[in-house]
Design a protein around this nucleic acid. Structure first.
Length: 485
RNA sequence: GCGGAGUUAGUUUAGUCUGGUAUGACGUCAGCUUCCCAAGCUGAAGGCCGCGGGUUCAAAUCCCGCACUCCGCACCA
């Protein structure tokens, strides 16, 4: 199914919808998750914790969304997260100052240069708008970070543009008090904020968005020594270094030097295993190795995990080897010590980052799971049972003859353990289809036989088959089918 | 940010040229009926027609501005 179908489902069934929609001054790039969306998101994150955080013995923290100016001076975001832009006085088009000058006059000015340098170059080389030959306004800096004023004096701080900075600045304390040993993963889920010029496509480019980030601190001298590599050496990943993605095992990827070391390969491996369990079609995925110009300013080696959807390849995760970029800049700026002992060696750890976009991942799960079942005239959201916002619908075949009361009784028993949904209203087929659309994998139906022998039917979403089971067994059956893998 | 197209109920849609406050479908709710896959009947709720301004006796409709959505360009640590 395509973007339009997913959007319709999202709006009709409460997965997500525009923020502040009743007001005309609502800004673009802000969306809310409704009940179904929150259900899916919570379960997705639980899976992430199981498959990455707990599997690897990582620490999870929850940091501030507003962070001080110093953090971003050290991180480089105040300098490099801003683009020098020029605007044409005639046609109002905007361009990157450094790129336009490089293109038109063959002069390289670093993007972090003073704004006067750009203006000077434009004047001296008589650079005009490439579109309409108009003249340019003075160069401005466009920083993607949201500024906030703190306290009555409105001291400047920023909404974080990525969650990971708290992991870096908290590292010295965490390593000490949590008795850390390299390699050590520290994880965080939370919101980040970027003032995108053109937010678009609902969850795919937001100004306020969720990230699940992992920073693995490691000794750069020991990147070939990761013990747990054996666990994933035979896991098949798809890697694209040139034109087409190629499937290979993690072991092969390291041997052929497509991935630089076992350490990076291990994390790409467990990441692939995680995404496989979300129900995303992994044959439509790739780790795309980024070229020099595409990489973020802090990255030494970078792989984007991308998945193909009906609107093209979507970047779900950025995997960056950030070297000691972050720790050394924070050490220098804060004058704190960031070195730690690894066996008998004092090292400033390097960082490998797995920066996941949660919103885009959820969209992709929805798109890959949404099926148009023409044969049975229904729309089915074939979510993995453990990700479904509703685990089980509890339905009465008819309301009369005491079936309603019996159904209520069963619902009360189930609802504290499972995400259960009670429904008495309308024809039974209609109720099944409603459940199909929000991805509920099971429906329990109470009929006349229930009153006689304490059995109910349990209907499977995907096959539409039904089995008769004892009410007393529901707990264990549902528990088994809806538990995380 | 530039260019283009659009915005009418939860969703989808007619009406806009040719001005007279809105149509159908699906969905929702209640009742009856049937009782295992969107059946039927009856009834109901739900719209300041994206927002603001202008023209007019009168604006969903004409004009202007803005916002948002989608497409293309640019941008995307």
């Amino acid at each position: 199914m395509n973007y339009e179908n997913v959007m319709k489902l999202a709006l009709e069934r409460g997965f997500y919808f525009p923020s502040c929609e009743v007001y005309g001054d609502a800004q673009a790039g802000f969306w809310e998750y409704g009940p179904s969306g929150v259900g899916l998101k919570n379960k997705f994150l639980e899976l992430w914790r199981r498959e990455l955080v707990r599997r690897d013995g990582m620490l999870e923290i929850d940091g501030s969304q507003i962070m001080s100016k110093s953090v971003f001076e050290a991180s480089g975001h105040l300098g490099s997260f801003a683009d020098p832009i020029i605007k044409c006085t005639n046609c109002k088009s905007t361009f990157r100052a450094d790129r336009t000058i490089a293109e038109m006059a063959k002069i390289d000015i670093p993007e972090s240069a003073d704004l006067e340098d750009f203006d000077k170059a434009i004047k001296e080389n008589d650079i005009k708008c490439p579109k309409c030959k108009g003249t340019f306004e003075n160069t401005k800096k466009f920083n993607m970070m949201f500024k906030v004023g703190i306290g009555p004096e409105e001291e400047i701080a920023y909404l974080r543009p990525e969650t990971c900075q708290s992991i870096f600045v908290d590292f010295p304390r965490l390593f000490k008090i949590m008795r850390g040993k390299l390699p050590l993963g520290i994880a965080q889920v939370g919101k980040s904020f970027r003032n995108e010029i053109a937010p678009r496509q609902s969850l795919l480019r937001l100004r306020e968005f969720y990230q699940a980030e992992i920073e693995v601190f490691c000794n750069p001298a020991r990147l070939q020594e990761i013990e747990r590599f054996e666990e994933i050496q035979d896991t098949v990943i798809r890697v694209q270094t040139e034109s087409e993605p190629v499937s290979m095992t993690c072991k092969e990827a390291v041997e052929r030097k497509i991935i630089p070391n076992k350490f990076v390969a291990y994390y790409l491996g467990i990441l692939t295993e995680f995404y496989e369990k979300t129900g995303i079609d992994i044959t439509k995925s790739r780790f795309r190795k980024l070229g020099e110009k595409e990489k973020a300013f802090y990255a030494e080696v970078a792989f984007d995990f991308e998945v193909e959807t009906t609107i093209g390849w979507l970047e779900l995760v950025a995997c960056n080897y950030r070297s000691d970029y972050d720790l050394s800049s924070h050490a220098k700026k804060s004058k704190e010590k960031f070195e730690v002992m690894d066996n008998d060696e004092k090292v400033l750890p390097h960082v490998f980052e797995i920066s996941m976009g949660i919103d885009r991942s959820l969209y992709t799960i929805l798109e890959h799971s949404l099926k148009d079942d023409k044969e049975n005239e229904r729309t089915v959201l074939s979510l993995k049972p453990y990700l479904s916002p509703i685990h089980v619908g509890v339905l009465s075949l008819v309301k009369k003859d005491g079936l309603k009361e019996k159904t209520d009784e069963i619902y009360v028993k189930l609802k504290r353990k499972f995400d259960a949904f009670l429904d008495h209203s309308g024809a039974i087929g209609r109720r099944y289809r409603r459940l199909d659309e929000i991805g509920s994998p099971f429906a329990v139906t109470v009929d006349h036989q229930t009153l006689e022998d304490e059995t109910v039917t349990i209907r499977m979403r995907d096959s539409m088959e039904q089995k008769r089971v004892k009410v007393s067994e529901l707990d264990s059956i549902l528990g088994e089918y809806t538990s995380f893998p």
